[in-house]
Design a protein around this nucleic acid. Sequence first.
DNA 1: CGGCTCATTGAGTCGAGTCAACACCCGTGG
DNA 2: CCACGGGTGTTGACTCGACTCAATGAGCCG
Lengths: 239, 239
Amino acid sequence: MVQTVSCNDCNLSAVCLPLAVAPDQVEQLDNILKRGRSLKPGEHLYNARDPFRSVYAVRSGAIKTYSLTEEGEQQITGFYLPGEVVGMDGISTAYYASSAQALETSSVCEVPFEHMEALSLQIPSLQRHFFKLMSQEIKSDRELHMLLSRKSAEDRIAALLLSLSARAHRRGLSAHQLRLPMPRNEMANYLGLAVETVSRIMTRLHNEGVLRVQGREVDIQDRDHLCRHGELRLNVQNL
Amino acid sequence: MVQTVSCNDCNLSAVCLPLAVAPDQVEQLDNILKRGRSLKPGEHLYNARDPFRSVYAVRSGAIKTYSLTEEGEQQITGFYLPGEVVGMDGISTAYYASSAQALETSSVCEVPFEHMEALSLQIPSLQRHFFKLMSQEIKSDRELHMLLSRKSAEDRIAALLLSLSARAHRRGLSAHQLRLPMPRNEMANYLGLAVETVSRIMTRLHNEGVLRVQGREVDIQDRDHLCRHGELRLNVQNL
DNA sequence: CGGCTCATTGAGTCGAGTCAACACCCGTGG
DNA sequence: CCACGGGTGTTGACTCGACTCAATGAGCCG
């Protein structure tokens, strides 16, 4: 069943697109949104090379984006959580540059890009918001660049955990207890590490009392220790 | 002396902002541009934390952007060549997220962002162009992500050389003879390598006949060999 | 000439990758 | 009910690519 709740009534309105739009204009946004498309784990939202039509606001669950290397392996380029907008890398080419796949049962709101563009010409704050969103994405990519080119495996993992924690907190959830939406090998892939390395470091952090780890459940015990390593702001779309 | 040539007469008009704007609207763009600011090698265009006011189109020379690690070392996040637009990572925060510094004598056109934003509301193709530019930047960052997380030192260097070559070609210069605008240590920094590694691999490629290297002058002899390694599209703002 | 920055080369080390084995959970089907 | 198999996670042993440290060379400018 398709959920038809308006942006005004969505519990993500404080962290999602509507925050850029005056209350009396949310209706216009509502009109172009297609709400409540839902995805099963592993299902694709779009594929690389599909014609670019829309960006998507994640409403629940988690989405990963990836592209393929020449050898046909995935390179995961990002994780998108509720309230975040996925698909903006397609704007420049008329085709999506990457594929987007649900990590778990998820639902998204589709934002047809041409309508959004037209609406942006009438609602300056919406244009501004999209500029900011994209700029934020660039900024996070720069942080990631630093992480990948200068930081150790432990630093990278710390940064990812802190990012997930900050993003959970932003949605009103606990900042220290979190459930990882992705398996170890996808964390490793994203961070440019081997699965084994991620596994080893997670158990070491557990033994050192920095984390309590139980499969995908992580409890952050010593945030300062993590911060000393991963003081970076990965992929946080907070504006 | 400040150069006052209009966008219409600039030899970069085919690869720079005007390509998005109908000829009769270039004048409006001309009116908001501040042309011909020139920079000496090492001079900063802006610093991280400066209030964000403008993006800049590079007219000649080369600009690098970098941010600082906690330990105070630079992480170079990008190189910008004539016809490319630098500074878009500042949009999301009201402050520049990184610093921009001239690698060699350079000149830039300043594009005050608020004016540009306002103009974009009137010229849809300009809004579209900025969306595309930023999306392109995101896309290149994703390529870089893949490079840094999965590729060997040789692959990274090959990719950078191919990128510089493609960008030179786009401006109408030779695709095989190029002069590197940056020293070895800045190549290394950008690519997440040690200077020594860059040096070693460059001389190896030279000895293998893939490149002719003479300091910063590089002549690409065996493009296929490079492509086999670095088949990626780094930071090419071609739309 | 001396003092810089930039680049190269060599020797030794180490962090993280690879390969391989095994443990665990869970759903399926005999 | 238990056996089986696949996906996921952990652990150990070994290897290697790239880093670090150190020395030297080449060019440039005052």
